[in-house]
Design a protein around this nucleic acid. Structure first.
Lengths: 192, 192
DNA sequence: TGCATTTCTTGCCAAATGGCAAGCGTAGGC
DNA sequence: GCCTACGCTTGCCATTTGGCAAGAAATGCA
């Protein structure tokens, strides 16, 4: 009987089953209630969290103090603030639960120890980083080449559950538009 | 007497001076003439290139076949296509020299061997990945919160040399606007 | 040098998106 | 259960950006 984290590690293709079990054993339980923060700006991210259930969002504040959603996270994904976690510097971003969440985390020191003792976990760690990077590149390209309506339709296709759990304004800032515009786009799309 | 690569490794703060010298010794010379490709889409990126002199750009094709600049690279930076290089998959992006370039590269297999034998190089490798990721996050936030004019002003401030070496259309796609708009923005800014 | 190609600018107008404010509905706290 | 946030929609109009096409300027190549 293997838990979701063990399976996630194993299914990456980079970790053996016994390796996955050993690695997963080092993670700790974590629960968050809706609206709880996993990370607040100014803090140093110290939880590399595998999400078993629930949804979260990452956001930053712009110069005018508006919060801008920089990412979403759903179950079977890893969430943490890359720069703060690896550089041990204060985060500019926040990570907040959109719904009640359950997951398993590991601290930076624990992760580094595991990296040293288990090369296959190192590979896994790199793959998480590379995937996050590539996904952001795809999103940037979509931001440049697609209309707001196309970007919303994409998001709806790829993350329908999140769209149901996040308020309109949150989704709008993620897409780079105002809540007013998103409301109009929704209306447009309903007509079709 | 240390070369630029050795200094770059050492100045990361993650590698000792002797370590930096040993690592640099594994890199190979590379020169590119203006407009040469370091990587073409469809190929697997196999050169982790430290640029000693010159400028390059990364670009992808959108659905209509237009090329979209996804990044710039100048001297004292490392350039490669992250996803293709680490996953050994065909690249969707191209890397092309904007000017004559000189640098030093290492292949994927060589890099992995070095990662295994020199833990300090592993740290360095991670820091390159993390920095690329964070920089892209900053750019995404700027894309969402700033006007085209502000983004252009930022780019002008951070990379004046590149702006002088890249054609207007190349810069425009990087900023997510048309060349027509960028031309107008330049005119506007000249008036001030 | 001269021709051809590309790059850049500009005018005119259209389309996309934003700003503001009012109104409405709903959900949570007391 | 009521009242107050808050979240969402909508109208009106402003601003930003784009599309197209023509022409000017610069560049590369024979």
């Amino acid at each position: 009987m293997n838990d979701a984290l063990t399976l996630f590690l194993y299914q990456s293709g980079l970790v053996s089953l016994t390796g996955a079990q050993q690695i997963a054993a080092h993670f700790h339980e974590k629960t968050l209630s809706k609206n709880d923060y996993l990370l607040k700006s100014g803090q140093v991210s110290n939880e590399y969290l595998f999400v078993e259930s629930g949804f979260l969002r990452l956001f930053a504040y712009d110069v005018d103090g508006n919060d801008i959603t920089t990412g979403f996270c759903s179950s079977n994904q890893v969430v943490f603030e890359v720069s703060s976690y690896f550089n041990r510097t204060p985060s500019k971003e926040n990570i907040q639960a959109l719904t009640d969440c359950r997951g398993r985390f590991i601290t930076f020191d624990e992760l580094n120890n595991l990296f040293h003792t288990m090369p296959e976990f190192r590979e896994f760690g790199r793959s998480i980083l590379v995937k996050g990077f590539s996904d952001l590149k795809v999103r940037m390209l979509s931001m440049i080449t697609e209309s707001a309506e196309e970007r919303y339709a994409n998001l709806l296709r790829s993350n329908p559950e999140i769209i149901r759990n996040a308020p309109l304004k949150t989704i709008a800032t993620y897409l780079g538009i105002t809540d007013t515009s998103l409301s109009r786009i929704r209306k447009e799309m309903a007509h079709k």
